[in-house]
Write a protein that binds this DNA or RNA. Structure first.
Lengths: 140, 140
DNA sequence: GTTCCTGCAAAAGCTTTGCAGAAGA
DNA sequence: TCTTCTGCAAAGCTTTTGCAGGAAC
């Protein structure tokens, strides 16, 4: 299913998650900003629209969305979590110079070894780090 | 090269890292406990031998070892980091029931897509989560 | 004697929790 | 009205930093 505002709203309704103004704004932000934002980034941006907004609400909302599998938590950094509205399998590459995070396609399932045949896999993450083409070119 | 105490000591010397008693103890612990321990676990255990030991020293040592590529930091959990003396490519599976972390072989390089041909990859991580056979069997 | 290392205390930073008030059905 | 949601303040935790004393060579 496509990642559209309407589809995700349907998903929330189906899972009995209230569609508060704040929650819909977080969802909207994640759909429009596919840059794997941090809580800080989401908060700072949405606060412009909702002056009374609290960071706790962002945390609450993201936890609920993650529990409902509508959002994926990306722990590619040590300090703070990032969030991705795209929950389909794909890899993440973090540039250690500019800090940007890139998506890349990867067929994870084809890699799963025989060793894991008796394990129940619920979550798959592939994180790479290094230098992106732009930073390599600029010798950063 | 095999992961032996002597080999790693040679590596430290080669990289001009002092071989203090505390650092060697941390190294020794990591070699003998391939369970991807946390700072807390390492600290608690080594404190029995070194009553004056400080957690800061553990953090310092692990940072130095990681910077020297003698240890790999595993960020499979949100809260606290884990450390692995095995720096060769392999995947990690965390059981969400019992908390154990399992190693599994994986040929990461064969998966790298064309999209990343212009990226310089310094670090590769594959983290899975789910239920291990033991927990599945016991219906935990 | 000079350099490096340790370890205490405090600070920093992200995230969670408790709780009272507001919003919504 | 009753439930759910928000948001402030405080707490919790891991990790980092500053700094003084100690060890090593």
């Amino acid at each position: 299913m496509d990642i559209t505002f309407e589809n995700l709203k349907q998903e929330l309704k189906k899972k009995n998650i209230g569609l508060s103004y704040q929650r819909l704004k977080v969802l909207e932000y994640l759909i429009q900003n596919r840059c794997h934002p941090t809580v800080e980034q989401i908060f700072t941006e949405l606060q412009k629209d909702i002056p009374t907004l609290s960071k706790t609400t962002i945390y609450n909302t993201l936890r609920i969305l993650a529990e409902a599998d509508l959002v994926k938590v990306i722990n590619i950094e040590e300090k703070e979590a990032r969030y991705d509205i795209d929950t389909k399998d794909h890899g993440h590459f973090k540039c250690e110079s500019c800090g940007a995070i890139f998506d890349f396609p990867i067929d994870i399932d084809s890699l799963i070894p025989e060793d894991l045949s008796k394990f129940k896999i619920n979550d798959k993450n592939v994180y790479f780090k290094g230098l992106c083409p732009g930073c390599l070119y600029n010798n950063n």
